[in-house]
Simulated scan of single mutants.
Amino acid sequence: MQKVVREIEMTGRTVDEAVTLACESLGVERDDVEIEIIDLPKKGFFGLKNTPAKVKVTHKASKSQLAVDYVTEVLGHMGLTNVKIDVKEEEESATLVLEGEGLGLIIGRRGETLDALQYLAGLVANRGEGSYFRITLDSGNYREKREKTLEQLALKIANTAVKTGRSTTLEPMNPYERRIIHSAVQQVEGATSSSIGEEPNRRVVISSKNPRPPRYNNNRDRGPRTDRGGDRGGRGGYNKRPYNKEGRPPRRDNRDGRPPRENRTVTPDPNKVRANPPKEAEGAPLFGKITLDD
């Protein structure tokens, strides 16, 4: 069990005052520290040049205890005062398991709040000297559930990558979750994984070791299309009639050899009934009087 030793020297009008100020500065209780008196208070002649008391206060605590104290303080500010913290300590790491009501607030969306608090607790635990001490924060067995979910996701995507030859980029994850993904992908033969990007947006890419070549559009390799319809232009062909200066296609003669309609000379047909009456009939009634003989 790694210990963190913190020391502080403090002065006061009395020894008791100096010790109290030192404990407040360290954020610990008086029963948890060692006290060494450096100087006792002294009074000068006629109350002049008084010498204050000086003490040295030493606090020894495990790194896990520092993390527990910090998490307890944060939970108190969040209004969660009835939370129990169970510590599972090992040689170079410790897991702090939170138990109580209202801990959904601590977990947050996809464990983001829990991860942030775990990161800060780790910083507090490693402020002293010594090797790195890993702090893991868990609540409601969330870590185990999340680990199983990530393993299933990684196996599914890895198998798909092997079958299709396509790569898949996952959402940003913290280093702990990325390690779970990498470990699960290694179980699938023919699949591989790598990380891209920078923190906190670093992602895992799952792909196949033998990716398939990309598909090409066969129409691009056939060259230019030809006009299937001859001079008349095939359906969808490129050999279309040119346009004139007005932006319209030129008119062609009819198939019987006659010129276009606007260029024809119309000759009246004498056999046809005139549409307009002659001048001598102007003003006459449309029908004449009909008399019948007896």
Rank of each mutant, 00 (worst) to 15 (best):
G47V: 09
L114N: 04
L123T: 14
D32W: 04
K63G: 13
E29L: 12
G108S: 02
L75N: 02
R6Q: 14
A67M: 01
K60F: 10
G79W: 12
K42T: 13
I107T: 00
V83I: 15
E90H: 14
N50R: 09
R110Q: 11
Y70E: 13
D16Y: 05
T20Y: 14
I107E: 03
V55D: 10
V28F: 06
V55M: 07
F46N: 09
V71D: 00
E73W: 09
G12T: 11
T113D: 05
T20F: 14
H77N: 07
E92G: 05
F46R: 11
A18L: 06
E24L: 13
L75S: 10
G76Y: 10
N50W: 04
A121R: 02
R13W: 01
E24D: 15
L105A: 11
L80W: 06
V19N: 11
A22C: 05
I106N: 03
H77V: 03
E101S: 10
D16G: 11
K63Q: 14
I37V: 14
G27P: 08
K88E: 10
L21S: 14
A125G: 11
G100E: 05
N126S: 06
A22S: 03
E90N: 14
R127Y: 02
L66I: 07
V97W: 02
D86E: 15
L98R: 12
A53D: 04
D69K: 13
R109F: 08
N82V: 10
